[in-house]
Design a protein around this nucleic acid. Structure first.
Lengths: 205, 205
DNA sequence: TTATATACTGTAAAAATATACAGTATAAAT
DNA sequence: ATTTATACTGTATATTTTTACAGTATATAA
């Protein structure tokens, strides 16, 4: 998703706030009043840019015909666009905008447990669990995981999706593929960050 | 809260549906078009009544200045409830109410192609394709399938999910499990009904 | 029988709104 | 040095939209 300029970001925020407050989108003139512009064309141009970049859609010819496609703020109203994050080898899978590959229209309550983002699977280490490369695993951010859960763990700079098993200070991260071996971590020697656990999976055919 | 008349209720529902679909409220004329009224005043009067009874508020002088104060339906925002159908051995997987096991809040556009319902997988015949028992396969109702597509086919009274391969009148339904054998159908002798094809899959962990 | 409320049609005008066009200014890139 | 992108002002107009007014029809209540 293309980056927004400072002013475009302001205009998008203005639309979102207005929508939240009144229940309907603002007119060009109202955006101008809110942001101190003196010409409706200022708002118009920013809206066009936002549409081009995919953040809003504009119903041409309709008054107030603006709808939010992708909210920049995490408004609870637009949670039906769930972010997809690549399972990058380095660093934590943060929800920062640059890490979001795309968004998928669905509800965080679609699985039995709610989730926060999708993680795109790399590699074949979980193939015997029916988890293929490029599958999207729904991750709930939590550190409350039990043995047997499918978890996202970060070791140093590497993020991995494995079955979880812990006995005292001995952590095992177990793959579902006989060609891969279990990662064993002695928690007294190395830190392991539990990013979350999988509550579901989706795949596009 | 005062009761609504039948027509007022229709108008309120119309506003809610429009809002859900487009992200902004309808004009008087659009309500008329939607409900078959021939005068904008019909919509106007109903809106005034709805405001008086406290269901909506109207920003006077503003176009589309309607906001919902009290929703009559418990709309789940923009989220559709997609039906889940069991892969029953007998008969076509119809969307009749009695065949719907449950509904899942998600969007029909969440996969690259739209879909109509989820089919709950029975058996292990597609396990090497990473499709497990009780996985939900998203099915698009279509007869436009190509060789290699994952399709839902009905043979006599049996519904099956397999890979599709057709040469002239020779249809092969290929499983993804070496313990199962390909179903071969001579279309001159036996009918095969293509119910649809899979566009995606979801699984709850 | 006469109100009264609901449920509209049809028309029209005033106001709101989108949107095109012609400019200006500034900073960064080529 | 010139182009390009961002970020506006200012004006004008066609279109959209609200909203008032004048009616018609029907069912229900007083």
């Amino acid at each position: 998703m293309k980056e927004l300029t400072k002013q475009q970001s302001k205009v998008l925020a203005c639309v979102e706030v207005y929508l939240n407050k009144t229940g309907f989108p603002p007119t060009r003139a109202e955006i101008c009043k809110e942001l101190g512009f003196k010409s409706p064309n200022a708002a118009e141009m920013h809206l066009r840019a936002l549409e081009k970049k995919g953040y809003i859609s504009i119903q041409s010819g309709s008054s107030r015909g603006i709808s939010i496609v992708k909210s920049q703020q995490a408004f609870e109203k637009n949670v039906n666009q769930m972010p997809v994050i690549g399972l990058v080898a380095a660093g934590s899978p943060t929800l920062a905008e640059e890490n979001i590959e795309k968004r998928i229209p669905c509800d965080p309550s679609m699985f039995s447990d709610s989730f926060d983002y999708f993680l795109k699977v790399k590699g074949l280490s979980m193939i015997d669990a029916g988890i293929h490369e490029d599958d999207l695993v729904a991750i709930k951010k939590t550190i409350d995981v039990k043995n047997g859960d499918l978890v996202v763990v970060r070791l140093e700079d590497e993020v991995t999706l494995k079955y979880f098993k812990k006995n005292n200070h001995n952590l095992e991260l177990i793959p579902a593929n006989k060609d891969f071996s279990t990662i064993e971590v002695d928690l007294r020697e190395q830190e392991a960050f539990i990013e979350g656990k999988s509550v579901g999976l989706i795949r596009t055919h």
